[in-house]
Design a protein around this nucleic acid. Structure first.
Lengths: 341, 341
DNA sequence: GGCCACATTGTTAACGTCAATATTCTCTGC
DNA sequence: GCAGAGAATATTGACGTTAACAATGTGGCC
């Protein structure tokens, strides 16, 4: 049957054309769903493709069209629940929309690393970029960069220059703080995230605004980072202050460390101290006590971010920034303050 | 100065050549570090590259060479600490080695989804693939697939057919179990992960082997998945059994749920019940009590996995499977059994 | 039955790069 | 100062695809 024993080159559009008895351009038309292909012809081509196990060469396609079906994502190199969830959701949804995703990981958010990450993605000729860089300096670095491609910032704070998708962090903080006030607490203390993170700043702002709006002067913030260790230290501090009856922790890991410190100090939660976290990590429900917290819908953030990016790519409408509302998840770590302060 | 107002086409190797006053092939030689380029020429080319902001077109390069600097990873679509850490480490190290990584996420591990994921990566003409699919069925699916490219399985169990990198899960379980026995417990109970996961099976095997080697018949396994919810349910069961004084949980999330249940049942940890987890999630140290657990070095797993893959790509030595030893992290959740059982 | 419109197919020329093959320098040795 | 051997550079031709354009077929209408 004239079988050549070649070095197993992958079949090309030409091989398919030969087998189907048409020109390679007709194959291309079938591949790209162009009109004006007779049904019988289309069928012949399709079966040739099947028999040969042909798969289009994306490099060749990208070369000739100058476009790629690749999206880049800049994401922090961390195992924090928020960024991880968001990234996974974005990757999954981009794949469903037919895009390939490449990720540039960021260990630090300084100008140089951010610039390098973006350049790496640009080197890959990505069609567009989503930036998950929840730190102001990283977003600033973007400003300096000659982009050339559409960029969306996701969960990285509002941006006057680019479309952005964000969870309303301040609103989440408001929900948490107000919930504690509504339970009857005289005021609410706050253990904050690292101050250069946008979410941390917004949560802090939402917290203090809520207090002020209730006619209260916010107590001093306990600064921390996102770790349980920092939460533990904060708890050792706050737990020794009898006037502290309600604490809003900037995320669930902090709250977890806080709970441990309060426990060690013999301060019962929620009887003596109420605690609210942020994120709703899968473990939150099973802490002692089950943690009241604020949930962010990362699926939705990812979907909106992708949609925003695609809107830019396709030059269609819907390029305005979007805000996602968080939601309070009530569990057992909040109660009215004990009668005797 | 003869500036053309074109549609801002990206500069090509030809533009660089023109600017440097050499042929495009010379530019190519400089780009690829070939010998026989005069120092002065190299310098001219390099500055032309800088002035033009030229970046090589990878699509063109991939097209002509038939190779790509892209690695594919199949990874579960989850926020579990283990897979997430491993994936992040692999991505980072691959990037350092000059490779681009694309990830195919797996929601379920059945033959069909695994096949699709692999095919998606193959469509992208990846040079090699790392598979993080800690479930037997997924690894089986690989066997059916015409690969064409080197594949390494990582943290997915030993594989007779392919090189693999794994943490010695059984050894980790042995460390945990033996540690509890050494503390004086009569036996050790086990809350297992989902039985189709390789790690879960190995940890169970390591646990029961250790008991048998100590002359003990393993008590019934409490089956669970990886979630805190399942750990909580297991704890409600085990906590009611006075003879249970030591529990090895297949991961830290399970242990966390377990701790809550024990706490609710008034069983003190570690005074009445000792608990050991697995993974050493960042929160483990701040649970009540701080959790003794087994740490896996995912950085190292990723490094070995990448190295194994590159060894195959470059047809060099070092293609044998590798095993990474886990390590016991002692904290406060283990103590000798109470005097009165 | 001839002509026109349009549907269908084919042909040719890029896209940017590297490999293979020429060509032109630049020495070295005598 | 000329041959010959390399070194250094240039020229040409793929790679697999799509776009632009050219060519052919097909039917309807008068």
């Amino acid at each position: 049957m004239g079988v050549e024993a070649g070095p197993a080159r992958e079949p090309s559009i030409i091989d398919v054309a030969r087998r189907a008895g048409v020109s390679h351009q007709t194959v291309s038309r079938v591949l790209n769903g162009h009109p004006h292909v007779r049904e019988g012809t289309r069928h012949k081509v399709l079966s040739a493709i099947g028999e040969l196990g042909y798969r289009p060469n994306r490099a060749a396609r990208a070369l000739v069209t100058g476009r790629s079906q690749v999206l880049g994502v800049v994401a922090p190199r961390t195992t924090l629940f928020g960024p991880v969830s968001l990234l996974a959701a974005f990757e999954e949804q981009a794949a469903e929309a037919g895009f390939t995703v490449i990720v540039a990981r960021l260990r630090t958010f300084d100008q140089a690393s951010t610039g390098n990450a973006v350049r790496r993605l640009l080197d890959q000729r990505v069609a567009g970029m989503a930036v998950i860089a929840p730190v102001a300096s990283a977003i600033d670095a973007l400003r300096e960069l000659p982009s050339g491609v559409p960029i969306v910032t996701v969960d990285s704070g509002p941006d006057r220059l680019r479309p952005a998708v964000n969870v309303d962090q301040a609103e989440g903080a408001r929900l948490a703080t107000q919930h504690l006030l509504d339970a009857g607490h005289a005021t609410v203390w706050h253990v904050s995230g690292p101050s250069d993170w946008f979410d941390a700043a917004e949560r802090m702002a939402g917290w203090s605004d809520t207090l002020r709006r209730a006619g209260l002067e916010p107590p001093p913030v306990v600064p921390a980072d996102w770790t349980s260790a920092a939460g533990y230290r904060a708890g050792q501090l706050l737990g020794r202050m009898p006037e502290v009856t309600a604490v809003f922790a900037a995320n669930d890991s902090l709250a977890l460390g806080l709970l441990r410190a309060l426990h060690e100090l013999g301060r019962s939660v929620p009887d003596q101290v109420s605690v609210v976290g942020f994120d709703d990590i899968p473990e939150a429900e099973f802490l002692v006590p089950p943690l009241t917290t604020v949930r962010q819908d990362f699926e939705s953030v990812a979907r909106q971010g992708l949609d925003l990016l695609l809107a830019q790519l396709e030059l269609r409408d819907g390029q305005e920034s979007r805000i996602i509302a968080p939601v309070l998840v009530e569990r057992a770590s909040v109660a009215p303050p004990a009668a005797q302060g």
